[in-house]
Every structure is written in C-alpha cells, then in structure tokens.
Write a protein that binds this DNA or RNA. Sequence first.
DNA 1: GGGTACATGTAATCAGTTACATGATTTA
DNA 2: TAAATCATGTAACTGATTACATGTACCC
Lengths: 174, 174
Amino acid sequence: MTKRPTLTPTSYLVLGLVARQGECTSYDMKVMVSQSIGYFWTFPHSQLYAEPARLAELGLLSEEQETTGRKRRTYRLTDAGRDALCDWVAEPTDEPTEIRDLAVLKLFFGRMAEPQQLRDLAEHAAAAHRRRLADYEAIAEFPDIEKHERATLEMGLNFERVAISYWEKVAAGL
Amino acid sequence: MTKRPTLTPTSYLVLGLVARQGECTSYDMKVMVSQSIGYFWTFPHSQLYAEPARLAELGLLSEEQETTGRKRRTYRLTDAGRDALCDWVAEPTDEPTEIRDLAVLKLFFGRMAEPQQLRDLAEHAAAAHRRRLADYEAIAEFPDIEKHERATLEMGLNFERVAISYWEKVAAGL
DNA sequence: GGGTACATGTAATCAGTTACATGATTTA
DNA sequence: TAAATCATGTAACTGATTACATGTACCC
C-alpha cells in the first residue's frame, strides 16, 4: 500500500503564496502571511521553511538555492504544483469554520468567575477587536489589493464588527 | 531550571468540563464537547483521554478507576485544579481569534480558479452556514441552558448570520 | 564599532490527528 | 442471535510550536 502524502492547509498556503509571487523564499512567505491571511489563521514561520522542502520533494515546487552568501532557497511552482493548487481551490469544502477564541472559551466557563471579572474579560476582548478592526480598515485603504484578497479582508471586517458589538453586549449584560 | 508544564487550551477545556459536571469520564467530555464548544473549536477524542491523565499527574485532577468491568476512569477537580481553572478564566487574554476556514483560504487564492467555480464554492459555503445556523437555532430552543453557555451560543448565531450574508454576497459579486 | 532589528534557517519537543482495537448495549 | 452502534481506550505518526543559533545590514 503506497503511502499517500496528504497535503495540509499549510501545503496549499505555500503553493498559493508561491503562485501569487511567481517565485519566493520562505521569508517572503512569512512576510506575506503576516500581512494578510495570517490575521485569520496563523502559520509559524518554521512551517514556512519546512513545508516548501516537502513540496519540492513531492515535485510540486522547484527549488533553487543561491551558491553565494546566504544560500537562500527560492521556490517556484511546477506544472504539477499549479494543477494541485487549482484543483484544490476549485473544490468546495465541507470543513466547518473553526473559531478558536480563548475569550469565548473562558466565557463558556464563565460560572467559575465573578461577574466583574467577566466584565473585564469582555471589555478587554471588545477593545482587542476594535484595534483589529482599525488595522483592517487601514489595510483596506490601499487601492490596489487583488480582488479575492479584498474579499477575504471583507470577511475580517465583518467579523470584527460583530465581535465588537457582541462583546460590548456581553460586558453590559453581566 | 525546572520545566514548567504549560497548560494548553485543551487542558483548561478538560478542567472546565470536569468542573461543570462535578465528575466525568473522558467519554462524557467527548459528548459534551460535541454538543457545545466543539462547534467552534474541535478537540479530538484521543486528546480527551490523554489530557486528563496528564492533568492528574500534575495534581489538578483526581482519577478514580473502576475495578470491575470497563475500568472506566472518572475524574474530579482537586483544589489545585479548581484554582488553576478559576485563575485562567478570570485572566483576560490577548490572543487574537483564529478563524480557520478552508473556504476563506480558497477564496484568498481565488485567482487560480474560474469565476463559476468560485460561485459554486461560495454557494456551497453559504449553504453550510445555513445548516449550521439551523443547528444553533434548534439548540437555542432548549430553555435551561446555563447563562454563559447561552452567551457563547449567541456568538455562534451571530457568526453564522454574517457568514451567510457574506458568502451570498461573494457568490453574487463574482 | 557596538547594538539592534531584520533575515534565514535547524532542532527538539509536544500536541493533534488518524488509525486501530475491542467490549458492551441496543435493536432488528 | 447477528448487526449495528455506543463506549473506552491505545498506538503510531506527523505536523505545529517553541527555542535555539547565526548571519547580515543598518544606524547611533
């Protein structure tokens, strides 16, 4: 039985970032992530070094290493990589959204705390979401954001707005 | 330097579930998770067997094993466990929310697909969120949900509503 | 020319995931 | 009484996280 190498979300992230740039290094990926999709879904930089190496072995990326100086590795999509990425993007998914929020988890166990502590928690969370919303609004000012990326940014804007009013209501209602 | 055993979100989940029930088995935890917080944040059942064992070693849970039949392990909070849980709940967090959504990740790389494929993706996502909203609304019918748990359910309801209108808009706008 | 921040990786550990296994109940 | 499902775990693997390590460029 041949071991099927399954691609993870991280794999497709890497393929997609390379596709977006034509070519890039792990560091480039790290920077891109931290300015875009990383607001929703964090990917530790060590994965952005490990994963391209794996994808190169699978023939989905080509790797070129500098001979001089830093010996940086630059990756490009192979045809197989492009196919894999396009197929994946086009395929609808049934995986439900995961909303991993420590504040929500704490609230879920809110009976363990005093009401005043929970109010603090809620106000803290509301403030954090206000800051995050301001970040997104600043990013949205840039005129030349690619269309689909702007659409994902819209998701962030929507989410932060509901999160703010949600936590304000929680803070008020306790 | 003594190795500080850091508690993960899974640890607090387990502590919180045990606190909620007074005592419970790993299977009880699995069932509770699948009916509540697991809608937001999935925890594989194997973790719900592994983690209580670890917490018992740390002295935060006490473990009692049946001698007969299934030899089930029942866990209870120790005083130290209750303190750790209460402290954690009361402490506001700065961890930003993670929204892990494969459909959003695909949309982010939407340029790799045809518009029709993206419309399908968006409609598929909208439908999934409609089903999820219906689930939440059915749960919300139950009258005797504990107050903080109902508050977290509200978060789910809010999120699903914005997700539905978001994906409908994406589907329409491509 | 010393400090600081940026850039580029590797290593070790640990948590999360998937798969396997089997006992106990219910139901057809 | 056989099949299906519920209940209770363990094992193996691999991906994610944290920590370590060092090189390079800039600036004070």
